[in-house]
């Protein structure tokens, strides 16, 4: 039923922990994975902070949900578009982000990176191809 598949984009523009938006966005992505839609995630502006490695929440009494991003590949959520300009503005490079991999079942289960670095114009193009854009 190709006609019933929509392109869903989850836009993440907020940092984790200070507000609940990042965590509750991730909960939507996890549930949404069961609906077999064409899912992409966008990380731009402060949203790129969600993916940095080395998050340790021991001192603030809340759950560190960053490892969950690494599990999304098992739910066929494999397209993480991360904006280069947003990283640069925040003094970050791709090396500061967690490694997030998925197994490509169309390519003999080869391990591939889920994170796709894109520039601002490519991010805009990708956003313009969606059927449903959900922002958190």
């Amino acid at each position: 039923m190709e006609d019933n598949i929509k392109k869903f984009l989850y836009v993440n523009r907020k940092a984790p922990y200070g507000t609940i938006y990042a965590l509750e966005a991730l909960e939507v992505v996890l549930i949404g994975a069961a609906f077999d839609q064409d899912v992409s995630l966008a990380f731009l502006d402060d949203g790129v902070f969600q993916l940095v490695k080395g998050q340790n929440t021991d001192g603030i009494g809340v759950k560190n949900f960053s490892p969950t991003f690494r599990a999304l590949g098992d739910y066929e959520v494999t397209k993480f578009y991360v904006e280069k300009e947003s990283l640069e503005e925040r003094g970050l490079t791709a090396d500061d982000l967690q490694e997030i991999m998925y197994e490509d079942e169309d390519d003999d289960y080869a391990e591939k990176p889920s994170i796709r670095l894109v520039n601002r114009a490519e991010m805009a193009d990708m956003m313009a191809e969606q059927d449903v854009v959900l922002s958190f």
């Binding site: 731009l44 805009a124 956003m127």
Partner: peptide
């Protein structure tokens, strides 16, 4: 907030 600036940066001609 950066929302307007970010929106201006990502909106495409004709939007």
């Amino acid at each position: 907030a950066s929302a307007l600036q970010s929106c201006l940066n990502h909106a495409k001609d004709g939007d």
